[in-house]
Design a protein around this nucleic acid. Sequence first.
DNA 1: GTCGGCCTACTCGGATATCAGCTGTCCGAGTTGCCCTGG
DNA 2: CCAGGGCAACTCGGACAGCTGATATCCGAGTAGGCCGAC
Lengths: 128, 128
Amino acid sequence: MKYSKATNYALHTVVYMAQESLEHPIGVKQLAETQSVSPTYLSKILTKLAKEGIVRSISGVNGGYTLTIHWEELSFLDIIQAIEGKASIFEDCLYQHEDCGIKNVMLMAEEKLEQELREHKIVALVKK
Amino acid sequence: MKYSKATNYALHTVVYMAQESLEHPIGVKQLAETQSVSPTYLSKILTKLAKEGIVRSISGVNGGYTLTIHWEELSFLDIIQAIEGKASIFEDCLYQHEDCGIKNVMLMAEEKLEQELREHKIVALVKK
DNA sequence: GTCGGCCTACTCGGATATCAGCTGTCCGAGTTGCCCTGG
DNA sequence: CCAGGGCAACTCGGACAGCTGATATCCGAGTAGGCCGAC
């Protein structure tokens, strides 16, 4: 029960991009260097973020990644779910037939977690 | 980012034992049948619970497991941590040197999750 | 001068390798209660 | 009748196998911008 390293990389990458807020895209190589990750691996993470519309990829020379227009609305939960998926923390209960009290408690706790992550925006971490 | 099946089994097992509240111990075989798990695997889970003092094992003929005396105080968190361990959900941040804003947010969210799991007791699910 | 083709830098996405942890099994060792046998 | 040894049921814990998902790499394909040559 841990968040993957990929989630960690994704969060740091998005914060970094928000911090810089460049007009021209940032290449994978540069992003990878700030976190000491292999560029190819980071590109996989960025692909996931792109599929969720969190970043936009620009091909060709001087290409790279930029945040999308609405990046100031981005919450932690948006990024985490883009990487981890939106599946529930707690797998389906063994007894499908009826309400499982255990499952109900677990889902309530998960909702508390997500609520907290939804309330925190990336923009709050950007130092001006 | 999911809870393991073992956690699911552990929760159901403890609830089942609380429900029955037998004076004589319950064997692994019987517990395994109620959840359609292999007895050997369930015994591994019960060993973990025993190490945390949640259940007590009794060797020999008519042996098995019983809940400990203070089982009415047991929370969901107790059982989950016995199986999953007490490590933080969020691994250490890449930059150790200083406060990482990302890490702080994640730890706060984790605390919300644990708080919710700590407030819910197993005894609340026992139907009388 | 301008248009078209080529070259380069870069991303995209699939295939693959590696590794860790979860899931599950097997087996030998230890423990306890019961039975059976010998005195 | 009674004591002691043996047997059976059960748990304990380590060793091990299989599988899934996370981590990480490599490479071919596609794309965009710039350069260069032909007209």
